[in-house]
Design a protein around this nucleic acid. Structure first.
Lengths: 183, 183
DNA sequence: CTCTTCCTAGCAGCAGGTACTAAGAGTGCG
DNA sequence: CGCACTCTTAGTACCTGCTGCTAGGAAGAG
């Protein structure tokens, strides 16, 4: 009985602590119906720090994480930008981008990368998206690295047409035509 | 000497802890050149919790934040859901959704609300967006409350057509036609 | 001088641990 | 069968960063 249970319990412990890091050894012991000492040994084996350390880590993480996740002006990393012509950005699909069950990226993240690329391509004080026609070619999985390329096709006075193609490796996963407006 | 210093010290203590919450009473005592007991009395007087409580608060804050921001399965609050027919969700535009300069919501958040609404409307294990044709009717400002309504127009075997209309008040701000696939 | 305010000191106790020792229970194997 | 080995549990000493309490000294106001 012992060996099989241990492995299973330690895996469960890891995932439980990942999703609920604010549990004391006491509470964990009760959940797994083992002694506190066993929990301590498991944490030691898995390199999981004590409750207070875990809380501290989460707290210290706060600034960097929330900021990089959503408060940046451009989604993805802009690696090339030739204003009014061409731009390229890269976005790594992490756990925060995917459906928990399927590990497939939510569509709006691909859209967000493409949309913010289209907007940043246009040289004006304020640029807003007016409409878009988009196609998701195939599902994108956790861990894939998306390279998005935006090209300005038309650039009249008030509006521009931008075509964005996103690839994972050499496969196209997303295509979109964005009409954006300068204000 | 005593009275004047006390008031000043307590004000300083409050602002110091606001900006650097991770200081022990010991460290605080040294900074203010008073005893640890004095710091404790000051904290008590000001209603400042102990170090561990402060850390916990920061950690819980950020946990709740990230979760509600990006790790939820549906963007916005689902207030009505009649599977395969009609669904309504509400999204309040907060500071995390807007461009810092203009306070106008980034397009991808409107898209995200509409897209996740379209996906949650369809009754299947795994539903993915295939394509979308979307229109942003007018800019959405910080603080506006977006009501998104999704209607299933066509529901063949593998694919469905969903039309989503998002309003702020009685003005339409976003329209989209989504083609989604059941896997 | 006394009263009050402010500061300091010291000690017991608590939560949630670490680090270590020891011992029982089940299992595998020669 | 007995012995080794793994896994689990128990118990103790110690640590940090506090709380809560008692007590006492200094210094200014009346």
């Amino acid at each position: 009985m012992a060996v099989r249970n241990k492995k299973q319990r330690q895996e469960d412990l890891q995932t439980l602590i990942d999703s609920e890091p604010f549990l004391t050894d006491d509470e964990l012991a009760e959940r797994f119906q083992v002694s506190v000492q066993t929990i301590r040994l498991d944490r030691l084996a898995l390199g999981i720090p004590e409750l207070r350390e875990r809380i501290k880590l989460v707290a210290q993480d706060r600034f960097a994480h929330v900021k990089s996740l959503e408060l940046t002006e451009v989604i993805g990393e802009l690696i090339e930008l030739d204003l009014n012509h061409l731009a390229i950005s890269i976005l790594e699909i992490g756990p925060e981008h995917v459906f928990t069950r399927t590990k497939i990226a939510r569509g709006h993240h691909l859209f967000a990368q493409a949309n913010s690329l289209a907007v940043s391509l246009i040289d004006a004080e304020v640029v807003l998206t007016g409409s878009a026609d988009i196609r998701f070619k195939r599902p994108v999985k956790l861990g894939e690295r998306l390279v998005s390329k935006g090209v300005v096709k038309d650039n009249r006075d008030g509006r521009s047409l931008v075509e964005v193609t996103t690839r994972a490796g050499d496969e196209i996963v997303f295509e979109g035509k964005f009409t954006v407006f300068k204000m």
